[in-house]
């Protein structure tokens, strides 16, 4: 039964056995091809194994099937990892501005060299409680030539 597969999947996730997690997610998808949890687990596990290409192709095939799930954040992250920065920003556009979307946006802007915009997003993010944010903020400020602030 599918519950046993999810129990197995959950165990692999807890043990950080991400390649195994991908295999079990695929087993779920072979019996329930549109299962959102299984697709999400597969995409996240692929990202955690650094298989960014495969994560993106999994997202694309879900999109081709017109599944009603929003993979925009994962997609934006994968595109960022592939240095497809404009496409990554595009994928973030429709999403609500939360600390996680703003964090990714700021990293993309940093790589694009858009330091003023990057610093701007960081300053909004400072209200949230992301511990190591200052490290990125300092980097952005240095490159923006604002190290005196």
């Amino acid at each position: 039964p599918i519950e046993d597969l999810f129990t197995n999947l959950n165990r692999h996730i807890e043990r950080s056995e991400f390649e195994q997690a991908v295999k079990v997610a695929d087993q779920v998808l072979s019996v329930a091809p549109n299962d959102e949890d299984a697709i999400r687990c597969k995409v996240v596990a692929l990202i955690k194994c650094d298989s960014i290409d495969k994560a993106l192709s999994t997202i694309h095939s879900a999109q081709r099937q017109n599944l009603p799930f929003d993979f925009s954040y994962f997609k934006a992250y994968c595109l960022y990892r592939q240095n497809k920065l404009d496409e990554a920003l595009e994928s973030l556009k429709g999403l609500e501005r939360t600390s996680e979307t703003m964090l990714l946006e700021s990293q993309i802007l940093f790589r694009l060299g858009k330091m003023d915009a990057c610093v701007d997003v960081y300053q909004k993010l400072q209200k949230s409680k992301i511990d190591t944010l200052e490290i990125n903020l300092v980097a952005g400020l240095i490159l923006a030539g604002k190290s005196s602030q």
């Binding site: 599918i2 519950e3 999810f6 129990t7 999947l9 959950n10 996730i13 959102e36 949890d37 999400r40 687990c41 996240v44 596990a45 990202i47 955690k48 954040y73 994962f74 992250y77 960022y80 996680e100 964090l103 990714l104 990293q107 940093f110 790589r111 992301i130 190591t132 944010l133 490290i135 990125n136 300092v138 980097a139 952005g140 240095i142 490159l143």
Partner: peptide, 21 residues
């Protein structure tokens, strides 16, 4: 060059499977 940590990576999370097991 300053290093930008990939903090967004930490936001990539598995869904809760609690109700699926």
């Amino acid at each position: 060059n300053p290093i930008v940590l990939d903090l967004a990576y930490n936001c990539i999370d598995f869904p809760s499977l609690e109700n699926r097991m």
